[in-house]
Design a protein around this nucleic acid. Structure first.
Lengths: 220, 220, 220, 220
DNA sequence: CATGAATGAGAGTTCATTCAT
DNA sequence: AATGAATGAACTCTCATTCAT
């Protein structure tokens, strides 16, 4: 079997895992359900993935590395720090909302991982490390962009860039997933997305940036 | 045994559950660990609680109802909407930070609950409903306060109150728990709190309110 | 529940394991079968033993330590090396043949253990070490006794004591278990014991010792 | 593909199985490991062998039939019963020690087979029967030789020939594999062979025969 | 009230075996 | 003749929950 077919099957299983785990939560999802959703046998999952946790970790890793690499790539075409910031929101937006599985991602990313010591295999520990690394990189990039904007005077510099990064990140996540305090899984899946559309989110983030901007753009 | 002693034992177990579940996550925590932490036997937990899930749900319910009731109570002494908003942050702050368990709450509230259909007992379904209700109430209260502020002209009214509520809520949670994308459990527990102190958070939230306020207060 | 009852239950399970594993072999025996034989649930086995391997290791350890300690103890009452040697055969005989499970022991002791690295728990590795130690001790004791007999001139000293120990040990085991080349498990269980009685074995070992003895005893 | 090539591939796989199973034990060995060792795919093993058990049984059968046929053949050139006995030890010696895999055979022959009822295929049951048959033949031959020696007065006839056969067989096996009570697999593989060389074993067996012989030969 | 021995459902995982290519 | 992706049976093990004491 050629590599393309193998990759296809792998991503079929991963997509099924995204749906089932995103819907029910990692610990309520079973491999049987994922296998059924993917249309394969239980055993085949272990041919493509080391174990159940590998599915979750692979999903997280896919997301964080996709965000980082896409963002990094698009950044090269931009000069203004504020544009870079907007670019980040756009990238996040594109990845999360490009298909019907959009809301599953929010639940995947909110899953807690077990302590690193619990990971038996070297390969899994390595993936784990890359997730942590990816998170740090993302945060660092955003903080740097904000710092640049403050230096050249387009963002309010009376507030530490780390703080502003958290404000923007928290707002973004809550706007996407409609969280206030943590909701129950089913409530999230069923209700939120319909009450919140893409345009609204983009506008809201634009307003937020504007508030911290020294030369606010006018929104249409 | 009198009611006071019973309540005491109940809350001893609940506090142990907060620590163990907050530290390891609901599914990685075992009743043995909680029992040991509480200094009681495994069996006794089932005398005070229906099952394991009851522990998690009871913790969530305690938190959300405490926030709501305290907030509701303190609101009566206040007139200005912006003061009411600040009051909410203060209440949240007091509950979360009043003891050494502060960061456990963040992990508790981030736990996903199983779909409501999975709850067998009536009592549990009822508690579950009260959590959902509590969340809605909280959101509704905040949205109302923001609406009032916009009406009397102390908050920017070009932005829908629901959106602003999410921005404030997301910022608050990320500031407390240092999230950007979800981190691994151990990272959260070990690192974040130390890098982020109470005063910093209060200041940050004040700045955020100020940005949306039409008559900003001057921070010292 | 008091310690006596606990020990009783533990040994009930161990005895069931001896029967089932001895009969079918470690890898063909299942925990279900052992649980049924012991009249307990599958789960209870894991309350008293760490895992399946712990059962096998505990059986081996019981045997080897029982042989060593009983032998050691009885040795103190004896002076003549040849009597000490006969004592060893008697001890082995008593332990193996004291109940209806006699032939199971042969199969248990012939089971191969997995490489020590495969043992996850510290406790299991420790038991494992004691088995290896017990084997070494046993061999050392026999070799020493033979050496003494050669020194005082009751055994032929033209043959190294280690070699003689293996000759005696091999003869003993084959006489008990009727092996020539390895037989199939069922053949062993069904046929051998009946064709070979205790007296015959004792006589055979006595003859063997006599052959290497410089002052042979006359057998009746 | 011609028969020679097929036989070659078959014996390549069998030799790999000897190594892997001899090293790790039948149940800890996997077909993947054997396939890798043989340099073929997992699937191909099932072209040449019915199933995993067929590998083990084929190895055992190869050994026992090789011993028997070689022995039978060489016997025709000999008259004296004691020479026939020595011939058996020589044959055993040649087969076991003729290559670097020597010690694997000991572990193979010590593997327990599942109860005959568990064998589904007719072909496997037939092979199984031939192994049992081969064992019996071997034992019978040795017993007969001893009986002849006793009849013509070259071996002590006060001991039943079956008993003497077991003494000789047990001594031979323990001398080769250094067993006393069963050791752990790794200990056997790593240590014993080096401490025990061919010459020592031959001498020891010669001494043993001498002891039971009425006209002992002088050893050099 | 409290204990902890006992239960058993249910999960992940392994790996021999099959079969389309 | 050879491959290796795919299957699924069967296992061990965990741990929430129960209940006799």
């Amino acid at each position: 079997m050629n590599q393309d077919k193998i990759d296809l099957k792998r991503s079929t299983i991963l997509r099924a895992a995204l749906k089932i785990i995103g819907e029910r939560g990692y610990h309520y999802a079973t491999l049987s359900q994922i296998a059924t959703e993917a249309g394969v046998s239980r055993g085949l999952i272990h041919f493509y993935f080391e174990n159940k946790l590998d599915l979750l970790i692979s999903l997280m890793l896919f997301f964080i590395e996709k965000v980082n690499s896409t963002h990094q790539q698009e950044l090269t075409t931009l000069d203004a720090p504020l544009e870079k910031l907007r670019c980040y929101f756009k990238v996040f937006n594109n990845i999360v909302l490009n298909d019907e599985d959009s809301l599953y991602w929010g639940n995947i990313l909110r899953e807690g991982l077990p302590p690193a010591q619990m990971l038996k295999s070297k390969m899994l520990r390595e993936k784990y490390g890359r997730i942590v690394e990816g998170n740090k990189n993302l945060m660092k990039t955003i903080v740097e962009i904000i710092g640049q904007a403050q230096t050249i005077g387009t963002l309010d510099n009376s507030i530490p860039p780390q703080i502003l990064a958290l404000i923007l990140g928290g707002s973004l996540q809550f706007l996407y997933y409609g969280l206030f305090l943590q909701r129950t899984r089913s409530v999230i899946v069923n209700n939120n997305y319909e009450t919140m559309n893409e345009l609204l989110i983009k506008n809201a983030m634009e307003i937020l940036i504007n508030k911290f901007s020294l030369y606010p753009k006018h929104l249409k």
